[in-house]
Simulated scan of single mutants.
Amino acid sequence: MRNLRRPALPGRTVRLRFTALYGVLFLLSGIGLLALTNLVALGSSRVTVPGENPQQPTLAASQELVGRLQAQLSETHTAQSRQLLIGSAVALAVMAVVSVVLGRVVAGRVLRPLRTITSATRRISADNLHERLAVPGPADEVKDLADTIDGLLERLEGSFSAQRRFVANASHELRTPLATIRASLDVAVAKPEPVPAQTIALADRIRTELDQVDRLLEGFLLLARTQHGALSDRATISLGRVVSAALDSRAADIAARSLTVHGDDVQDGAWTRGSRTLLSRMVGNVIDNAITHNHDGGWIRVAATADGATARLIVETGGRVLDQEQIARLAQPFQRLGADRTGSDSGSGLGLSIVAAVATAHGGDLDLRARPGGGLRVAITLPLADARAGVPA
């Protein structure tokens, strides 16, 4: 990996530029202050000598003239001091305003590269880590900061690429041993000679555990692919239709637990854009969670609506009153409320974490709330899309 950091040249640092700019500003402010003060102070500095008789003045007249001149000089000095004070105050106020305006303009020009770096960094996410800041300019602290961030982005891009390769390879490498074990069990049980009952019971138990491991592995790989992969099969999808399909495919499970589904508020106008596979899995996980963590004879309320620029999916279930602090942790992997919630300890703890990851990957959000009357409220918000932008799903 190339080293993007370059030592800043001592003569072209941001600190030196700030020092020079503010030094020039203060110098110009001082010059302007002195100029205004002198212009105001010199406005009335003329002393008027009263006219005298052209005849030879006497000694008494001369002394009287000297006294009048001294009094007039004292008054003139006092007036000039007052005028100087007023002029200084006016000049100080004017230059203070000018200095603030100039300082703001200069600071904006100096900090413009930092604003460029900030806005460019905010635009870069996991989907476009290949982009770089590439800030032009002298080799100073700002350039060194931009190059350091570019180096960090390059390292992050390498890490994300390694994670994507791991997800792609793990799907094959980890499923192969499971398939081999399952095939070996089938061969052992299918032998012509009588198989002991204990062996058949053990094989059934191992198959059950293998199915659980397979579901756990599938959920883990889907979670990793959602968090660190790219959405390749984007399309414009009707959230209401995905919900209806999920409910139809789980009709047998719903009937087995005698659950009542209220889905009158499932609208066909709630469209969003994203991966059809991931969004279907997201909706399926929410419905599965509502079926599994429910009591026999309970109810499920489903709503898919469009509100402004948002498509919203809300799934509510009844039950006992839950702790909101524990509910907030359900979006994290391998977090469950336990068997005391429904009398069942089934599930891998990845269902709602996959829902949260899929919603985040599509620019949405997952909100989990404990209902005051008991049960859970799951709300998913996604960006609303125009139904005419793609092929309906």
Rank of each mutant, 00 (worst) to 15 (best):
T180F: 08
G108W: 01
S81A: 15
R165M: 09
A89F: 09
S125M: 01
Q163V: 13
S171K: 08
E154H: 09
L129G: 01
L102G: 09
H172S: 13
S161K: 10
A93T: 08
S45H: 08
G137M: 04
E154G: 14
Q83F: 02
P177K: 01
M95K: 03
L174N: 02
V101M: 09
L111S: 08
R68F: 08
T176K: 15
A93K: 09
Q72D: 15
N128W: 02
G158Y: 10
L111C: 05
I181F: 08
V135Y: 00
R155D: 11
D140E: 02
T176A: 13
D140N: 15
H77P: 01
Q56I: 13
L129Q: 02
R112F: 07
E75G: 11
V98Q: 05
V47F: 15
D147P: 00
R164I: 03
S125W: 00
D147E: 08
A60F: 05
P57R: 06
R165D: 13
E52Y: 06
R104I: 07
S44V: 07
S44N: 13
P54E: 00
A91Q: 00
S171G: 15
Q72N: 14
R182S: 15
R82N: 12
E131V: 04
L92K: 05
L178R: 06
D144V: 11
R132Y: 00
T116Y: 06
N128A: 01
L145N: 04
R68Y: 09
Q83P: 02
L114I: 11
P138H: 01
V49M: 10
T118H: 10
G108Q: 03
A41V: 06
T121A: 14
A107I: 09
P136E: 04
A91K: 01
S161E: 13
E141F: 01
D144Y: 06
A179Q: 14
D140L: 00
N53F: 03
V135Q: 11
I149L: 14
I149R: 04
R112T: 08
H172P: 03
A170D: 04
A126N: 07
A91S: 10
A96S: 11
A168V: 06
R132G: 02
N38W: 13
R175S: 12
A120P: 02
V66D: 13
S74E: 14
L114F: 12
V97D: 04
A139T: 15
R132L: 00
S171R: 15
T76W: 10
A96V: 06
A179P: 00
A139C: 08
A79K: 04
V105F: 14
P177M: 00
R104D: 07
R165W: 05
A162I: 06
G67H: 11
R104V: 09
V40R: 15
S119V: 15
T148H: 10
Q80T: 15
G151K: 06
L65Q: 13
